[in-house]
Every structure is written in structure tokens, then in C-alpha cells.
């Protein structure tokens, strides 16, 4: 569970995901992408939503990371996906976030990326990483 505005614990979900994926010996590149996707997702929830969850599903040929939140939602997904576009608060920016790269980063680290959102309800992000073709550095 990731709680809105709780910046002190943002990053713990991605650390847990990293630990689990290391235990099952996935390639470093896959682990790195998964950690980045979940971390950016956590930061998004903490910055914009009331609360949310990060879910990791491990399948034989890919892993799926989902970030499901309850919050303000995103009115214009196309705009939100543009590099550099951000509605981050001053507080979020002061911490070094809000460069408008979060969703682009998540997309670039995913093999399959899907996002849906409803205003005043929340956002559901799905990112999957293929296990084949992602080899160690």
C-alpha cells in the first residue's frame, strides 16, 4: 500500500520488488527495469493520489507491474505522456521530482505499457517486461 503524500516511504515497494526478483535470479536488466517502473509509479501515487497499490505478478515469460490508485485521475493521458509535461506541486518539485518524465520513463522501460484513468476516481497503470530478450548487461 502506498499512501498519498508519504514521501518518506516512497521507494519501499520497489525495494521489495527488487529483493523478490533477485531471489528468483532474474537477469539484472529485468530487475532494474522493474525497480524503475515501480519506483516511478510509487512516486506518482505519493505525489498525486490519495492511496494506491503496486502489484507484481511473475509469469513464465514476463513480469507484470501494476499501479492502481484512488485519486484525482489524469484528465488528458496524451498530454500526461509528453516528456516534460507536469502538474507537480511546488513541494514535489522541491524534492527533485516533477520533471514530467515519470510516465515516459515507465513506458520506455516497459515492453508492453497500458494506462487508463478516470477523473476523480483514479489511475490504473500496467507495465510488463519480457523475460526473453532482456539479458544481463
Amino acid at each position: 500500500m502506498v499512501i498519498g503524500d508519504d514521501f518518506d516511504h516512497a521507494g519501499e515497494a520497489s525495494r521489495n520488488i527488487k529483493t523478490i526478483l533477485k531471489q528468483i535470479n532474474l537477469p539484472n536488466d529485468v530487475i532494474r527495469k522493474a525497480a524503475l517502473i515501480s519506483y516511478e509509479s510509487e512516486i506518482n501515487i505519493v505525489s498525486y493520489a490519495r492511496k494506491g497499490i503496486i502489484r507484481l505478478t511473475i509469469l513464465p515469460d514476463h513480469i507484470l507491474i501494476e499501479a492502481v490508485d484512488e485519486g484525482q485521475g489524469i484528465p488528458d493521458l496524451e498530454l500526461a505522456m509528453q516528456p516534460g509535461w507536469s502538474t507537480a506541486s511546488q513541494k514535489v518539485r522541491e524534492m527533485g521530482f516533477g520533471a514530467g518524465m515519470g510516465l515516459c520513463n515507465i513506458k520506455s522501460f516497459s515492453d508492453i505499457f497500458h494506462i487508463s484513468s478516470e477523473v476523480d476516481k483514479g489511475t490504473h497503470l500496467k507495465a510488463s517486461i519480457k523475460l526473453k530478450g532482456n539479458t544481463d548487461d
Binding site: 516512497a10 521507494g11 520497489s14 519506483y39 516511478e40 527533485g96
Partner: peptide, 30 residues
């Protein structure tokens, strides 16, 4: 900017920054 660290800094690198909040350490760990 942490988002820029996440986008452009690669594993094993040094991160040179003026950021001081705990998130910079979390980011370095990720």
C-alpha cells in the same frame, strides 16, 4: 532532478548531485 536521474543515469555510475532529501538515496538504490 530525480526524474532525470532515473531517465539517464546508468547502473554502477557515480551520481553527482546537490539533492539532499532521502529520495536521492532511494533513487540511487533503485
Amino acid at each position: 532532478l530525480i526524474s532525470d536521474v532515473l531517465a539517464y543515469v546508468t547502473p554502477g555510475c557515480l551520481l553527482i548531485t546537490g539533492l539532499t532529501n532521502p529520495q536521492v538515496v532511494r533513487t540511487a538504490d533503485v
